[in-house]
Design a binder for these strands. Structure first.
Lengths: 213, 213
DNA sequence: AAATTAATTATACGCTTGCATAATTACGCG
DNA sequence: CGCGTAATTATGCAAGCGTATAATTAATTT
């Protein structure tokens, strides 16, 4: 009676796929991409390694799914704050920018996760497509907020403004996540709002809620 | 006489270390970090694998050295253009920004290299120190160029301006390298100059050489 | 209650990895 | 010219990797 076969219960397509993706994200987030092996992911998900290949044709496919989910979650965190914001265009833009520049969006683990995926992009064209989609998704959201502002700007100007604002947010997010101790509390949000204001020619600081930062 | 031992010549500390670092960079640049194995690096350098451990205590130490060299080279490419630039502060800043936003600084291989290293930062504190040093080095150069501008700004303002300009350059560099086809030729440079101009309250476009972009 | 099917486990293979150790060889110095 | 030493090669190992395939089991259907 030494060879007892392991008990298990079935989750079915949706549940199991989600569990495997969650396990992969957790591992990459904790120990980097190198630690997210097929075996480790399976163990974290309470499953045997072979099962991964039953849901994903290859490990890279699982990685792509995980990356898409991470990026969606970050964007969503910035979108969520819009729900409880008054309908003034400047206020909405200001809150959106600010939310992108503080936790949980700014986070060293999220950045490590992001970087871990990023380096796969050069070899894996499907991964590049996932990246492009999530980048454009965020930028389009930003562009929509900018377009709602009361000002005159043609389509080309709008596109350039969205690219510029997206870049400054990306850059601040990146360094803030990589070097948390290099910036004072609230400094990133303040600089981000000032920069976006300067690029668009308005004053977002005036629109921020009273609690400072 | 089947076992002919391989001929070799000695390079000594300096030359061999440099050759190994160059080989590592070339490999990561071509095929991503995963392809830069100890064996592949040795082969590229025309050497047997064991030798790597003679010059670097561990593979990670070699990776750190390679990262430092890559970042230095990128910064240096932006600095070099300053040599042949007239001494007007605005012109110097404009050329520096523009150089950071086009090849060879903007380059998908360089970005892949950078991302490949970045994900090591979270676990490897020595790698984080290398990153911080090179980030601050670039930002200090930028801050020096900004400080030379004819305008009034206190120390805090100068620091915030340098962080903001650095962020927008970083963001544009990143997306331009990751998604080369998402931007028109010269678009990144144009947007970068406009953004830095807006943040600092001046007009760098007027300072650029005649050949457009 | 038996049969069917899809989900899951089990096992194993071939390959690659980083690293250690011992044998060799080129080169500088006396 | 011979000797010593440091640079370099050669060999091998233990571990981990992704993947393939076949056996088993839980749930669903009949």
């Amino acid at each position: 009676m030494i060879g007892e076969r392991r008990k298990f219960n079935r989750l079915g397509e949706d549940g199991r796929r989600a569990a495997l993706i969650a396990a992969a994200i957790a591992l990459i987030s904790e120990g980097g991409p190198a630690t997210a092996t097929v075996r480790a992911i399976a163990e974290r998900a309470g499953v045997t390694p072979g099962l991964i290949r039953h849901y994903f044709t290859t490990k890279e496919a699982l990685m792509r799914a995980a990356y898409a989910q991470v990026m969606d979650a970050m964007t969503q965190a910035s979108v969520d704050v819009l729900a409880s914001t008054p309908n003034r265009p400047q206020a909405r833009l200001a809150v959106f920018v600010a939310a992108s520049l503080r936790p949980p969006v700014v986070d060293s683990r999220a950045m490590g996760l992001w970087a871990g995926f990023l380096h796969q992009m050069r070899e894996d064209s499907e991964m590049r497509a996932v990246h492009e989609a999530s980048y454009l998704h965020y930028r389009d959201l930003l562009q929509g907020l900018i377009a709602a502002l009361p000002r005159v700007a043609d389509a080309g100007q709008l596109r350039a403004d969205a690219i510029a604002c997206n870049a400054v947010i990306d850059g601040l997010w990146l360094e803030g996540s990589a070097l948390p101790d290099a910036f004072r509390p609230g400094e990133l949000v303040r600089i981000g709002l000032r920069s976006v204001s300067a690029i668009l020619g308005l004053d977002l600081m005036a629109e921020m809620p009273e609690r400072g930062i």
